[in-house]
Simulated scan of single mutants.
Amino acid sequence: MHSIHELGDLVAVRLTWTGTVAQDAGPFGAGQELTAHIAQFVRVDGGLITEIETYDCYEPFQVEK
């Protein structure tokens, strides 16, 4: 996580996600690393999450043929 901002019942989070592909799946090969930069907006009511809205931007990746 890079930053978290709270405004009333809305929390905005900016983060970077990385994951490694476990097995060949579609155009992705096992061991390939994926990275996404994410903005996420979370609405909370009574201490419970009531809504999550996420925007992802993946870094370019190689598609295996």
Rank of each mutant, 00 (worst) to 15 (best):
A22Q: 09
G8D: 05
D9G: 07
T35C: 10
G47N: 10
F61E: 11
G46A: 09
E6T: 13
A30I: 08
F61L: 01
V44M: 07
T35I: 12
Q23D: 08
E53N: 13
R14G: 11
A12W: 06
E51A: 03
Q62K: 13
G29C: 02
A39K: 05
R14K: 14
V42L: 10
W17T: 10
E51M: 04
L10N: 07
A25D: 11
W17C: 09
T50V: 14
Y55T: 06
K65G: 05
R43Y: 03
Q23A: 15
Q32R: 09
V11S: 02
L10G: 07
T20Q: 13
V42H: 10
G29W: 01
P27M: 00
Q40S: 15
S3V: 08
I49K: 07
A30E: 04
E64Y: 00
Q40D: 07
I38M: 13
F41S: 06
W17D: 06
S3R: 12
D24Y: 00
E33K: 12
P27V: 03
P27A: 03
E33S: 07
E53G: 06
K65R: 11
Q40M: 14
T50F: 02
Q40E: 11
Y55S: 08
Q32E: 00
T54W: 06
C57T: 12
F61K: 04
A30D: 00
L15F: 09
P27I: 00
E33R: 08
A25Y: 05
H37Y: 05
A22E: 07
D9Y: 03
G29I: 10
P27G: 03
A39D: 00
T20F: 04
S3Q: 04
Y55I: 09
T16E: 06
P60K: 14
T20Y: 07
Q23M: 12
E33L: 05
T18P: 04
I52G: 03
V42D: 04
Y58S: 06
E53W: 11
L34R: 08
L34M: 08
D45Q: 12
M1G: 13
G31H: 02
M1F: 06
F61Q: 03
P27F: 00
G8S: 01
R43P: 04
E6I: 14
Y55L: 12
D56F: 15
R14H: 14
T18Q: 10
E6P: 05
V63P: 00
I49S: 05
G26K: 03
E51C: 02
H5T: 15
Q23C: 14
A12Q: 08
E59F: 08
E59T: 15
W17A: 12
G26W: 03
D24K: 05
G47W: 04
P60C: 14
A36F: 02
P60S: 14
V11F: 12
E64L: 01
C57H: 13
T50R: 06
G19M: 11
T20L: 06
T50L: 01
V11K: 06
M1N: 05
